[in-house]
Simulated assay, not measured.
Amino acid sequence: MPHRSDPSAHSPVLPSRDAVAATLRVAGCVFAEDEADLILAAANGDPSAVEGMAARRAAGLPLELVVGWAEFAGLRIFVEPGVFVPRRRTEFLVEQALTLAPDASVVVDLCCGSGAVGAALTVALGAADLHAADIDPAAVSCARRNVASLGGHVHQGDLFDALPARLRGRVDVLAANVPYVPSDEIALLPAEARDHEPRVALDGGADGLDILRRVAAEAPGWLAPGGHLLIETSPRQAPEALSAFIESGLEASLAVCRERAARVVTGRRP
């Protein structure tokens, strides 16, 4: 009788958690075991997918871009290469917005990137009219995947130029996670950001405040009476950021979360 080989004997074997973690650990990943679990889950039993994702992560691609999503404010936010990965510290901006405007009905997520901030606000608020905007086509495409199911609208363009004119004077929450890294400090960022995220999402000009100043100057015309502008900033930039808000006619204050190293400048339209 002719011998029949077992087809399963030639099938690729799924790498073990320990093997994936070992690959990541050699590459310097501090939480190698946890990352291995996420990679194995994302690969859905495909050995070649596991090997490919582990190799990309070991080469320095951010884990979120490897597995295709980032956790943010309890949500799974879709991300892809070429798009800014939402930072967990930015959850503080969302929390501040919800504290200041718990009944907001019109929300704008400016410089939206993946749309994480707008998505988190909309889920928490319930029935808010969400508009997200970014100048980067890749970010706009990604944001649409994250907010379409929430009934949100995504627009492409330079800051307020992207928004429908009908929103003027009606925005309750204007969240703008603008780029705020000074141009000459981009090279000092961790490789994950420096090499794998778009410069347009990081570079805030000479002192890091170019985009913030533009947003603060135009925001009062878009905010509803009593509406709030919220922008994340750094400890060094906070005083100048506050001044920009005040100069635009907003009632400004600074909120700080030391645990997450987060600072958010808030401005209320009187």
Rank of each mutant, 00 (worst) to 15 (best):
M1F: 01
S5W: 08
P7H: 06
S8A: 15
S8W: 13
S11K: 08
P12N: 04
S16D: 05
D18A: 14
A19I: 06
V20M: 07
A22G: 12
A22Y: 11
L24S: 00
A27V: 07
G28Y: 12
G28H: 13
V30P: 02
F31N: 11
F31T: 11
D34G: 05
L38C: 01
I39C: 06
I39T: 11
A41H: 08
D46C: 12
S48Q: 11
A49G: 08
V50H: 01
V50I: 01
M53P: 00
M53T: 01
M53Y: 03
A54F: 00
A54R: 01
A58M: 04
G60E: 12
G60D: 11
G60R: 11
P62L: 14
E71L: 03
F72G: 04
F72P: 08
F72D: 07
R76A: 15
F78N: 14
G82T: 06
V83F: 02
F84E: 12
V85W: 08
L93D: 03
Q96A: 14
Q96W: 04
L98C: 09
L98T: 04
L100Q: 03
A101Y: 08
A101Q: 15
P102Y: 06
V106Q: 04
V107I: 10
V107C: 12
D109F: 03
L110M: 14
C111A: 02
S114N: 07
G118D: 09
L121W: 13
G126T: 07
A128N: 07
A133I: 10
D134G: 02
D134C: 03
I135E: 11
D136W: 03
D136M: 00
D136V: 04
D136F: 01
A138S: 09
S141Q: 04
A143Q: 10
R144C: 05
R145H: 15
R145M: 13
N146E: 05
S149T: 15
G151P: 07
G151S: 09
G151Q: 09
H153S: 12
V154F: 01
V154S: 03
Q156E: 10
Q156H: 00
A162C: 06
A162K: 03
L163Y: 00
P164T: 04
P164A: 05
R166E: 14
R168G: 10
G169F: 02
R170C: 12
V171H: 05
V173L: 15
L174C: 10
V178K: 01
P179M: 02
P179I: 01
Y180H: 06
D184V: 03
L189Y: 08
E192I: 11
A193M: 14
A193G: 10
H196M: 05
E197H: 10
P198R: 01
V200G: 08
A201R: 04
D207M: 13
D207Y: 12
G208Y: 00
L209R: 10
I211F: 07
R213L: 00
A217G: 05
A219C: 11
P225I: 09
G227F: 10
L229G: 01
L230D: 02
T233H: 06
T233K: 02
S234C: 11
S234D: 12
P235R: 08
P235W: 09
R236T: 14
A238C: 02
E240K: 12
S243D: 13
A244H: 01
A244W: 02
F245A: 11
I246E: 13
G249T: 03
L250N: 02
S253E: 14
C257V: 00
R258D: 15
E259F: 09
A261S: 15
V265P: 05
R268I: 13
